[in-house]
Amino acid sequence: MVALVERAKSGDREAFDRLVRVTHGDAYALALRLMGSTEDARDVVQEAYLRAYKGIGRFRGDAQFSTWLYRIVANCATTHLGRRQRHRHDHLGLHHDVIDTRPDHDPALQGDRAELRKRLDDAIGDLPVRLRSVVVLRDMYDLPHEAIAAELGISVTAAKVRLHRARRRLREQVLPMPGEESSA
């Protein structure tokens, strides 16, 4: 990967194409989680790779290429969501198909985990975009608070407040405490 990135930085288009081949699945998964629709996710990923292609010379290599790419995807998604909200109401559903290829020895446990993941996936899809973006980038993709704040155009404090609010909502909806079930 490092060698590919170095070749791509020196203008080798073939190397960049190979980077696309290796990383586009993850980039698409992130875009899909942020956008909630396959059509929008596709647009965001195409735009993100174009930005990455134009800016690869500025990639310093102090972070992983995938992290750098996630930041670009997040930035493109923010731009796209802003554009979309100006044109039509936000669609919050995130009911895309998932394939679970991981084996597990205990079918009941696997069923529980799959059920939990499904409920969590749905709950993430039901979050408002401003909360969803932060929790997905931080808790699923491990982006630092500073990077998230920069890509979403908000302060670090605001990013943390949104993150805690999002976690709380998810916990209440997916794993409610006694007395919270009715509101979940």
Binding site: Y28, A29, I99, M140
Partner: peptide
């Protein structure tokens, strides 16, 4: 959830 692959396009 991150490791759960989404359907490839």
């Amino acid at each position: 959830l991150r490791e759960t692959p989404v359907l490839k396009d």
